[in-house]
Deep mutational scan, measured.
Amino acid sequence: MEVRTIKVFTTVDNINLHTQVVDMSMTYGQQFGPTYLDGADVTKIKPHNSHEGKTFYVLPNDDTLRVEAFEYYHTTDPSFLGRYMSALNHTKKWKYPQVNGLTSIKWADNNCYLATALLTLQQIELKFNPPALQDAYYRARAGEAANFCALILAYCNKTVGELGDVRETMSYLFQHANLDSCKRVLNVVCKTCGQQQTTLKGVEAVMYMGTLSYEQFKKGVQIPCTCGKQATKYLVQQESPFVMMSAPPAQYELKHGTFTCASEYTGNYQCGHYKHITSKETLYCIDGALLTKSSEYKGPITDVFYKENSYTTTIK
């Protein structure tokens, strides 16, 4: 009895394709271990004539594949690729409408935090270190965002349907971005203890939790000093293409032309909904596939993004 075979390709990165001759009487799992086709788990399936010449994702289970996976995804987590594939199996079914010149995501599976993050990423200057993220990001900007969303979920250790947080998501993504040249110098002034300067680099240099107003941050924000008295913390120097200011959701007025974009969060910790506000020729609110415009805006804002380049204080 002759062994019926077909020729397929296996890959971990969709760049390096490895030619395989597979036995049609055995499952993919018996031949390769966990195997995925377009995100779908085909591990328990036997090869079919229609699979001839198709590319299958496999887990990096030998040295060659491990090197290829690390170079593309910059992670050695053995569960990463499987999590990416199972997320992709959902995100490829989502709709990605162009809204006001940006790629958004039609609401499904509690994905409003991903839509808000995706919209924000198209408006701030950011370059990702893992080629996987950078490639998928370019495709997302062009309207094909399924891979990018699935990668975000995998890097953030999230599953489809789980509630997510924009600030946490951005923080994970910033860790995989090139923020080497970003720098922030802060000064804390206390009447009792004097003053202390701190220099922050990388992710810490672009994120701040405690106030939404970048102007206020430049002037000074009140913080408790270690001595128990009130101290003032203010920005001395900022070198970065953008800054992200966050605070627990509270009524906040966004003035046209003073910011790049913002995240609105309605609801409580267990259950809520994100919308995205962007400042173009007027203010726009993007909620999944829905767009509304207004000249002014007041609502429960939790993150505001500002364009920056270089700032030095005039406070002496």
Rank of each mutant, 00 (worst) to 15 (best):
E2T: 10
E2K: 10
V3G: 13
T5F: 13
T5W: 12
I6S: 08
K7N: 14
V8C: 11
V8Y: 02
F9Y: 14
T11E: 07
T11D: 01
T11F: 06
V12E: 06
D13T: 09
N14P: 13
I15T: 12
I15W: 06
N16P: 04
L17R: 13
L17V: 09
L17I: 09
H18G: 08
H18S: 06
T19I: 10
Q20N: 12
Q20T: 09
Q20E: 13
V21Y: 12
V21I: 14
V22C: 14
V22E: 00
V22Q: 08
D23C: 12
T27R: 11
T27L: 12
Y28A: 05
Y28D: 06
Y28Q: 07
Y28E: 08
G29W: 12
G29H: 06
G29V: 07
Q30P: 11
Q30K: 12
F32A: 06
F32W: 15
F32N: 11
G33P: 09
P34V: 14
T35A: 14
Y36M: 06
Y36P: 01
D38F: 10
G39S: 13
A40T: 13
V42K: 04
V42N: 07
V42I: 12
T43P: 03
K46P: 09
K46M: 15
P47M: 05
P47K: 01
H48D: 15
H48S: 13
N49L: 14
S50F: 12
E52A: 12
E52H: 12
G53L: 11
G53Y: 11
K54W: 12
K54A: 14
T55C: 10
T55H: 11
Y57Q: 05
N61H: 07
N61P: 09
D63I: 04
T64P: 11
L65Y: 07
L65C: 10
R66N: 13
R66F: 13
V67P: 06
F70D: 07
E71P: 04
E71C: 09
Y73N: 04
Y73W: 02
H74C: 05
H74N: 05
H74D: 01
T75Q: 11
T75F: 08
T76S: 14
D77R: 07
S79D: 12
G82K: 15
R83C: 05
S86Y: 07
A87I: 04
L88Y: 13
L88V: 08
L88P: 10
N89F: 14
H90S: 13
T91M: 06
T91N: 02
T91R: 05
T91I: 00
K92R: 14
K92S: 11
K92W: 03
W94Q: 05
K95R: 08
K95C: 12
K95L: 14
K95S: 15
P97T: 07
Q98D: 04
Q98R: 15
N100H: 11
N100A: 12
G101D: 01
G101W: 00
L102T: 15
I105Q: 06
K106H: 12
W107T: 06
W107Y: 08
W107D: 06
W107S: 05
A108M: 05
A108C: 12
D109G: 08
N110Y: 01
N111M: 08
Y113N: 06
Y113R: 07
L114F: 08
T116C: 15
L118K: 03
L119M: 06
T120C: 14
Q122F: 00
Q123N: 07
Q123G: 01
Q123H: 03
E125S: 07
E125Q: 13
F128N: 05
F128W: 09
F128A: 03
N129Y: 05
P130D: 02
P130V: 08
P130K: 02
P131R: 07
A132K: 00
A132S: 04
A132T: 07
L133R: 03
A136S: 08
A136K: 02
Y137T: 02
Y138G: 12
Y138L: 14
R139W: 09
R141T: 10
A142I: 13
A142D: 14
A142E: 12
G143R: 01
E144A: 08
A145E: 03
A146S: 09
A146N: 03
N147V: 09
N147K: 11
F148S: 01
F148W: 02
F148L: 13
C149K: 02
A150S: 02
I152T: 10
I152G: 04
L153A: 00
Y155D: 08
Y155E: 02
C156F: 04
N157P: 03
K158H: 01
T159Q: 15
T159V: 09
G161T: 02
G161V: 03
G161H: 05
E162P: 01
E162R: 02
L163H: 10
L163M: 10
G164L: 00
D165W: 04
D165N: 15
D165V: 04
D165H: 08
D165Y: 09
V166S: 02
V166C: 10
V166A: 10
E168M: 14
T169K: 04
M170K: 03
M170D: 00
M170A: 03
S171P: 04
F174C: 01
A177E: 00
L179F: 08
L179W: 05
L179A: 07
D180W: 05
D180C: 04
R184K: 00
R184M: 04
R184E: 02
R184P: 03
L186S: 06
L186W: 08
N187D: 06
N187S: 12
V189L: 09
V189A: 10
V189E: 04
K191P: 15
T192S: 14
T192E: 15
T192P: 09
C193V: 07
C193T: 02
G194F: 07
G194D: 01
G194S: 05
G194L: 03
Q195M: 15
Q196Y: 14
T198V: 13
T199C: 11
L200A: 10
K201E: 07
G202R: 03
V203E: 00
V203Q: 04
V203Y: 13
A205N: 07
V206Y: 04
V206I: 09
V206N: 05
Y208E: 07
Y208H: 14
M209D: 05
M209C: 09
M209I: 15
T211S: 08
L212F: 02
L212Y: 07
S213W: 02
E215V: 05
E215A: 08
E215I: 03
Q216W: 00
F217T: 04
F217D: 01
F217V: 06
K219S: 10
G220N: 00
G220I: 04
G220F: 01
Q222R: 13
I223R: 01
I223W: 11
P224T: 13
P224Q: 13
C225A: 06
C225Y: 00
T226D: 13
G228C: 01
G228K: 01
K229R: 12
A231R: 02
A231P: 04
T232S: 05
K233C: 14
Y234G: 01
L235Q: 00
V236Q: 07
V236S: 02
E239P: 01
S240Q: 05
S240V: 02
F242P: 00
M244V: 10
M244R: 11
M244F: 07
M245L: 04
A247T: 12
A247H: 11
P249F: 06
P249S: 05
A250E: 12
Q251R: 01
Q251G: 06
Y252K: 04
L254Q: 05
L254I: 01
K255V: 13
K255R: 11
H256A: 13
G257L: 04
T258S: 07
F259L: 01
T260L: 15
T260Y: 07
C261M: 03
S263N: 15
S263A: 14
Y265A: 00
Y265M: 04
T266S: 10
T266L: 05
Y269M: 08
Q270S: 15
Q270C: 14
Q270W: 09
Q270T: 12
C271P: 07
C271Q: 14
C271E: 10
G272F: 02
G272N: 00
H273Y: 01
Y274Q: 00
K275E: 01
H276M: 12
I277P: 07
T278A: 09
S279H: 02
K280D: 10
K280L: 14
K280H: 08
T282V: 10
L283W: 06
Y284Q: 10
G288V: 00
G288L: 00
G288T: 00
G288S: 04
A289E: 14
A289K: 07
L290T: 12
L290G: 11
L290D: 13
L290S: 15
L291F: 15
T292C: 08
T292E: 12
K293H: 12
K293P: 10
S294Q: 13
P300I: 15
I301A: 00
T302I: 10
T302K: 01
D303K: 00
V304F: 00
V304H: 01
F305D: 00
F305H: 01
Y306R: 03
K307V: 14
K307Y: 12
E308S: 02
N309Y: 01
N309A: 14
S310R: 13
T312P: 12
T314K: 15
T314W: 15
I315V: 15
I315F: 15
I315E: 15
K316W: 15
K316E: 15
